[in-house]
């Protein structure tokens, strides 16, 4: 009698103890893998704040690439209207100066991009312009990495990346924006 009862118990109840482990595994898996909407963006480093006005530097105009964006989201590059689609190529030409022209940068190290916008400029346009300028530098660094080490810039060792970065430093100087077209 006693023996049959134990057998009954065994066939009636499946051991559910391991279910907990399975559920735990799931829980931990989700906790580890769920990322709250991964974030990507254009990384910039702002200049540090100082109360005194910055020292005025005398720069050779051939080394300065001035980009102005007005409240109507139009682009004025070195005094001439430009379409945003042409900005990347022109910026690259300015920095690298492959034909050694007298109106473009003497050396990538000396090139300075001066970016100025209006308080009424759309953020979308501003970011698009900034993106093009950064893309120009990234392209040039990639070309340099390709030429020297026949590798992409991102695949280089940190030392070599640093070397190329100092050969083609990213200098984007942002001026205090004008205020002509801010919405009320």
């Amino acid at each position: 009698m006693g023996k049959t009862s134990t057998r009954d118990r065994m066939s009636n109840e499946v051991n559910a103890g391991s279910m907990a482990d399975i559920a735990f595994l799931l829980l931990i898996f989700f906790l580890v893998t769920t990322t709250i909407a991964e974030d990507k963006g254009v990384l910039v480093k702002l200049p540090s704040w100082s109360e005194e006005p910055p020292e005025t530097q005398k720069l050779n105009t051939r080394n300065v690439y001035s980009v102005l964006v007005n409240a109507d989201n139009q682009l004025l590059v070195r005094g001439e209207l430009m379409d945003i689609d042409d900005l990347l190529e022109n910026t690259k030409l300015f920095i690298s100066n492959p034909r050694n022209e007298s109106d473009k940068a003497e050396d990538p190290k000396k090139a300075i991009i001066s970016l100025k916008n209006d308080r009424g400029t759309k953020y979308k346009t501003y970011l698009a312009v900034y993106n093009e300028l950064k893309a120009a530098y990234n392209d040039l660094r990639n070309d340099e990495a390709e030429r020297k080490y026949s590798k992409r810039f991102d695949d280089l060792t940190p030392d070599r990346q640093k070397e190329i970065r100092s050969a083609i430093p990213l200098v984007i100087s942002e001026a205090e924006p004008t205020n002509f077209g801010e919405e009320g």
Partner: peptide, 17 residues
């Protein structure tokens, strides 16, 4: 941006698609 610079928080990411 000015407020961030004054707070000495200079690493900024413009989130984008």
């Amino acid at each position: 941006k000015t407020a961030l610079r004054k707070a000495n928080q200079l690493k900024v990411n413009y989130s984008a698609k």
